[in-house]
Amino acid sequence: MLGAVAACLAAPAAAEITPTEVRFDNGAVAQSLTGVPGDPAAGAKLLSSRADANCVACHMIAAQPDVAFQGDVGPALDDVASRYSEAQLRGIVANSKLTFAGSVMPSFYKVGGHVRPGDGFTGNPAPADLGPILSAQQVEDLVAYLLTLKP
């Protein structure tokens, strides 16, 4: 699934900032990970997709009333763009722990340092070259969508 999404949005690999190259400044990431503007419509879909991002597992979002079973482990995402800048949102999605120390929110654009990582939800051990949960462009799409969430 992830591969299909990534393939049709793929940016030139050379332009992409890899997970280990991302520069965080107080948790925020100023530079786009791909240089290709994010697609808010794709981001909206990702937010509620069970397979990869599944942000609604933990967040409610009034802008997507059709999505059943929204969780409340984290704060509601409504109006989140009025609380955070683009750089802050990119940082939160890429690695929330650098904004919220010890957060239960997963780090979506991070590689390495996991304890017993699996191969997706199969329960099998992860391959040695396990990539981040989301691709660079998926992070950009989500950020683009989050930026539309304002009063």
Binding site: A57, F69, Q70, V73, V115, R116, P117, I133
Partner: peptide, 23 residues
């Protein structure tokens, strides 16, 4: 905190008992 999502039993069943995680 296990797995790529880095979640411990406590993250869900202690810190967030009573809340909804998806359904």
């Amino acid at each position: 905190r296990y797995g790529q999502l880095e979640l411990s039993c406590a993250n869900c069943h202690e810190q967030n008992a009573g809340k909804m995680i998806r359904a």
